[in-house]
Amino acid sequence: MAQHWTHRGGGWLPPRSPRPEVIPLRPLGPRDILDGTLTTLGRYGGRLLGALLLGQLAGLLLLVAVAGAATLASVTRTVGSGVFVHTLVPAVALFLLAGWALATALAAALLRPAVLGRPVTTLGLLRAATPRIPAVLGARLLALLAAAGPGAAALAAGLPPLALLPLAPVALWLGVLFALAPTAAGYERLGPVAALRRSARLVRGAWWRTFGVTVPAGALALGAAFAVPLRFGVLGALLAPALLLAFPQPASGLLYMDRLLRLGPGLSPG
């Protein structure tokens, strides 16, 4: 066995074993979060993606059924020709929103074993995440409503888009302030409103840090979603939505853990 010299006592000690966890158990720097995200994806990415695809299977089958029924109705002209668009667009939106919530719940369920270096299975990860999907989805919808609601209401009232420019910084600020709410709902088993309060408390004093982690992770996921279909063809096109949903979540989860570590044990749940 290889040995190394230690300066304490001048003796020989066995080499250190590899760190089993994906992050050091201390407040994290930006490089720690990036390294931890890549390590998490390297160790658990296959199981995370597998659980996401397996969890989306039922929704995908339902989406295919809706698309088939809408296409048949449009071709036979039993209803108006616009039924395909009017039916399929909301179905796709709901499918993506549910997938987004599932990906966040899976990443939150993965946090504890990843940080502690414990093994997980695809089915075990899916079983742990499934009960938290409604709360995660609720937190996600409330965060979107808080950020985009005022602008959407102004558009519905007939204001021109240029008049909404002053609302853009507010929407961005609120979006980042509540960015950790879905992870809080999944990891701490909080309700949607409590998760938004928790995110606001965690992000307070670290808005730019949160922005600097979540936005680049989303941009990288978007780039990967475009690049994978070009490289792998049809298979890549099938995997691209899952990558877009799953890739940013570990970075947000590790940032969430970092904020918990920094604020310490005094941060009580709820």
Rank of each mutant, 00 (worst) to 15 (best):
S268W: 06
T39R: 15
L49N: 00
S81F: 14
R259C: 07
R112S: 13
F95W: 15
G236F: 09
P169D: 10
A219Q: 07
L137S: 09
A65H: 08
L72T: 15
S268N: 10
A147E: 00
G266M: 05
P113Q: 03
L141Y: 01
A70D: 04
P15N: 13
T183A: 15
V215D: 00
L13C: 10
A157F: 01
V215S: 00
P161R: 01
L255F: 11
R16L: 14
L41T: 08
L260Y: 06
P166L: 00
A143L: 05
R140N: 11
W12D: 03
V136D: 02
A51D: 04
P229N: 12
P131A: 08
S17C: 11
I33E: 07
A2I: 12
L54M: 11
V176D: 02
L222V: 15
A195C: 06
P250W: 08
R259H: 12
A251P: 04
S199I: 02
A217Q: 05
P134Q: 02
A157V: 01
R112D: 14
A242N: 03
A163C: 11
L235M: 10
P134F: 02
L41Q: 11
T183S: 13
A181R: 03
G124V: 10
G10N: 11
L94H: 09
G205C: 06
G151Y: 02
L190P: 01
T104Y: 03
A251I: 07
L61S: 09
P229Q: 09
T6G: 13
P134L: 04
G175P: 11
P20S: 07
G212E: 05
D258C: 08
E188L: 10
A221S: 07
G175A: 14
V170F: 02
Y256V: 10
A148N: 00
S81D: 14
L96A: 11
G42Q: 02
A217T: 10
G253L: 07
G59W: 08
L230A: 15
L263P: 09
P30E: 07
A105E: 06
P216N: 03
A51R: 06
A206D: 12
R127C: 01
E21P: 14
L52N: 04
F95Y: 15
L62K: 07
L202P: 02
A237V: 02
A135Q: 12
A98Q: 14
G117H: 12
F211A: 13
S17G: 15
V170R: 00
L28K: 05
A156D: 00
A179E: 07
F232W: 15
R197H: 00
W12S: 12
T122D: 05
L38A: 14
G175M: 10
L238T: 10
M1G: 14
G264N: 07
P269Y: 04
T122K: 04
P134D: 02
V203Y: 03
L255E: 11
G59N: 04
G218V: 09
Y256R: 10
A91S: 09
L60Q: 09
L97F: 13
A194R: 10
V136G: 06
L180N: 12
P113N: 06
G42K: 08
T122L: 14
D35Y: 12
F211E: 04
